[in-house]
Structures are given as structure tokens and as C-alpha cells.
Computed example of a mutant assay.
Amino acid sequence: MATKTLDTKTGTAGTETASTSTTTSSGETAASKKTTSVDNATVNEDEMKSSPLHKFFVSALKDIYFAENAIIDALEKMQEAATTEELKEAFEDHQLQTKKHVSRLEKVFKLIDEKPEQKECKAIKGIIEEGEEIIKSTEEGSMTRDAALIIAAQKVEHYEIATYGGLAQLAITMGHDKAADLLEKTLQEEEDTDYDLTEIAETYINFDAEQED
């Protein structure tokens, strides 16, 4: 329980001066406690790290960290399977970008004082397996395969967009502003990739695939 002490001195004019200090039961002053400010509210960082929301945030980071590493391998297979050079280059570019996303996530872990760890993401495993099935079930060298691969890749992008969008908002809520900036940067890049894949599909791949027997 906090205690308050009052020191009183009377000067020549008969006035009083008072000084106060607040201490905790452990003798620690309130000012020395490690705190962080979130929307004008002062929150103890130790309490925040033990909160259910923080634990969920970290768990979700581990989930997408696993997903990004799995996507790197998946994009290599999709690049090899693609028919057109334009789509091959798009997959190669996104693979390089995904490696940057992995490094960026490691920075996010560091910013919130957590160790980078992977947690198996069943959702992304299912999406990747679907992409592998597309490769097996479509004809090599066909535009139909490219059209199907773009859809498979966009399913990956939409999962990432939903994840990074939610994580960025949670980071803002908890006052992790620098982490939020990194997550939002990745979010924007994922949205750009999704748009680029749509452009590739609509420019000619879907039309050419429709003409195939």
C-alpha cells in the first residue's frame, strides 16, 4: 500500500511548506516503475506482457513467421511450374520480398522483447498443399496452369493481408508504434503483390487459358 509522508517547517513569517513522496510497499518510488503510455493511459509493461492480448499477438506473430518461411519454399516450386516468363519473374520477385518480410518480422519480435519462434500454421499449409495439387492436376506449359497458379498465389496473399492488417492494428492498440510501422509496410507490399498478380491474369493469361482445348 502506498504511504504518504509530510514534512512541515515553519518559517519566520509563520508559513508552512510541505513536501510529499509516494512509495510502494517495496520502497520503490512510483516514478521509477517501468511504464508505457497507450492512448494517454499509463500501463505497466510487465502487466502488458502477461495480458491475454499480448500473448495472442505474440502467438499470431509466430504463426505468420512460420507461414512466411513456408511461402519462400512454395514460391520456388510455383516459379518452376509457371509457364510464362512474366509469372515466373513475379514469383521470383515475391520470393525475394518474402525473405525481407521474414527479416522484418524478426525486428518486430525484437522490438517487443520476444524471441523469434515459429508456430505451425495449419492455414498456410493447407493453402500451399492446394497449390501443389494445382501443379499436379494442370498440364505443363499451359496457360490454364498459370491462371490456376495465380489464384493459388492470391489465396496466399489474402491470408497474409488479413494477418498483417490485424497485427498492425493490435500493435497500435498496445502502443508498439515502431512494430506497427513495420507490419504496415509489409501489409502494403502484400497488397501491391496481389494487385500485380491480378494485372498479370487480366492482361492476357486468363484470355489465353480460355482459348485452350
Rank of each mutant, 00 (worst) to 15 (best):
M1Y: 12
A2K: 10
T3K: 09
T3G: 03
T3H: 04
K4D: 13
D7V: 07
T10A: 12
T12W: 02
A13Q: 13
T15D: 13
T15E: 14
A18H: 15
A18S: 14
S19L: 08
T20V: 14
T20H: 13
S21F: 02
S21I: 09
T24R: 11
S26L: 13
A30E: 10
A31E: 15
A31V: 13
S32E: 14
K33D: 05
K34S: 14
D39S: 10
N40K: 10
T42P: 01
V43W: 03
V43A: 05
E47I: 10
P52M: 12
H54S: 13
F56E: 15
V58N: 05
S59W: 00
A60M: 05
L61P: 01
D63P: 01
Y65D: 04
F66H: 12
A67M: 09
E68N: 14
N69A: 07
I72D: 07
D73Y: 07
L75C: 02
L75W: 05
E76S: 14
M78C: 08
Q79L: 03
A81E: 02
T83I: 09
E86D: 14
Q95C: 13
Q95Y: 07
Q95K: 15
K100F: 06
L105G: 03
E106T: 06
F109P: 08
L111C: 10
I112F: 01
D113Q: 12
D113P: 02
D113W: 09
E114G: 06
E114T: 12
K115V: 11
K119D: 07
C121P: 02
C121Q: 03
K122D: 11
G126F: 08
G126K: 12
E130C: 04
G131R: 01
G131I: 07
I135E: 11
K136H: 13
K136L: 07
T138C: 10
T138P: 11
E139A: 11
E139N: 11
G141E: 10
S142P: 07
S142I: 11
M143F: 15
M143H: 12
T144I: 12
R145C: 00
R145Q: 10
L149E: 11
I151M: 14
A153R: 03
V156N: 03
Y159E: 05
Y159P: 04
A162E: 06
T163L: 00
T163G: 02
Y164M: 01
G165W: 01
G166D: 01
L167Y: 04
A168D: 00
Q169M: 06
Q169N: 03
Q169C: 00
Q169S: 08
Q169W: 00
L170K: 07
L170P: 00
L170M: 08
T173R: 09
T173W: 08
M174A: 11
M174K: 08
D177F: 09
K178M: 08
K178C: 06
A179Y: 10
A180P: 05
D181R: 10
L182P: 03
L183F: 08
T186N: 06
T186S: 08
E189C: 02
Y195D: 12
Y195M: 12
E199C: 05
I205G: 01
I205C: 01
I205K: 02
N206R: 03
N206P: 01
N206E: 02
N206Q: 01
F207K: 05
F207D: 04
D213R: 13
